[in-house]
Each structure stands twice: as C-alpha cells, then as structure tokens.
Simulated scan of single mutants.
Amino acid sequence: MPLHHVRTVFRRFIRHNGFDAAILAQLAIIEATPGRVVCQVPVQQENTNRLGTAHGGWLATIVDVAGSLSIASYGRDKTGVSVDINTSYLSAAKLGDMLTVDAVCLKLGRNLAFTQVDLKVGEKQVATGRHTKHLGGQPPHPAKPEPSS
C-alpha cells in the first residue's frame, strides 16, 4: 500500500510540470514502506555540470523530493514545506551512472518531519542529506499513531 501511495504523490509532483518534472521525470520509485522510500535515477546529460558529473543542485533536489516521499510513505498526501535542507557531497557520480536513493523519515511529528537521504552508485556513497519539513499542524496519519497520553 505505501508504494502505490508514494507513486501517486510523486505523479502529482510531476504533473505540476514545474521544476520536479523538468529534472526528475526519470526517477523510479522501487520500494516504499512506512517511513522509507528507495528510488533509482540515471545520471543524464541534463543533470551534469561542466565536469561531466552529477550537478550538486540536482542531487540536492533529489534529497528534497525523496525526503518528501519518505513522509508521504506514511499515507500523507501533503508533505509540508522545507524549513531546512543540507547536502554533503562525498564522491562524484558520472554520466550514465545509476543512483540509488534511500530516504528515511527519522521523525514525524505534528508540526515537523525530519528526513535523511543517502545517494549511492553501487556501494559508493555519492551524497547524503538531511531535510526538515514543516507539516502545518496536520494530524498524523493512522499509519503513524499519536503518542498515548
């Protein structure tokens, strides 16, 4: 069930025909469980910098979108707005490489969600990022029960 829902939310991102559609149309969602999403995306010419490696802005966008999808994996239609995002670049990904993206929602609260996203080519870590999102006080989805009082 989470896989279908996450793919539906992502299709909405792409249907908007904005930034996400322009640079992440090739993103494939492979796996989704509550709190975790795994994706793959090839490094294509339009995603590279002048050195022929994956552009840092593109990788940061993947951290943004994949972090959002890890929140959606709890059954949420709305994934909030970014409050803070950071990306550390550890190694280069080249044209033609297939990136595997592992996004985990570390904490889902009433107002904030905290995610971590790791990007790899095979076993080589390319980048890692953290993404904090404001959820607007939406009540947690039933897949994530509220703490008992």
Results as ranks from 00 to 15, higher is better:
1 M>C: 07
1 M>H: 07
3 L>H: 05
9 V>N: 05
9 V>Q: 05
10 F>D: 00
10 F>C: 05
11 R>F: 02
12 R>N: 08
13 F>Q: 08
14 I>Y: 01
14 I>L: 15
16 H>C: 09
22 A>Y: 05
24 L>H: 13
26 Q>C: 02
26 Q>A: 14
26 Q>G: 04
31 E>V: 04
32 A>M: 07
32 A>Y: 01
33 T>R: 13
33 T>K: 12
35 G>F: 03
37 V>D: 02
38 V>I: 15
38 V>S: 07
39 C>N: 05
41 V>I: 15
42 P>H: 09
45 Q>W: 15
48 T>P: 04
51 L>D: 10
54 A>Y: 02
54 A>V: 06
56 G>W: 03
58 W>Y: 15
59 L>Y: 11
62 I>A: 08
63 V>G: 02
67 G>L: 00
67 G>A: 03
67 G>S: 02
68 S>T: 08
68 S>C: 10
71 I>N: 05
72 A>R: 05
73 S>K: 09
74 Y>P: 11
76 R>F: 10
80 G>Q: 07
81 V>P: 06
82 S>K: 07
84 D>K: 09
84 D>Y: 15
89 Y>C: 13
97 D>Q: 10
101 V>N: 00
101 V>Y: 00
102 D>H: 03
104 V>W: 02
110 R>N: 13
111 N>Q: 12
111 N>P: 06
111 N>Y: 08
112 L>F: 14
113 A>T: 05
116 Q>S: 13
119 L>C: 10
120 K>I: 00
120 K>G: 00
121 V>N: 05
121 V>Q: 07
125 Q>C: 07
125 Q>W: 06
128 T>N: 08
129 G>I: 03
131 H>W: 13
131 H>P: 05
131 H>M: 02
132 T>P: 04
133 K>M: 06
133 K>W: 14
136 G>T: 12
136 G>V: 10
138 Q>K: 06
140 P>E: 00
141 H>E: 10
141 H>L: 01
143 A>F: 00
143 A>E: 06
143 A>Y: 00
145 P>D: 06
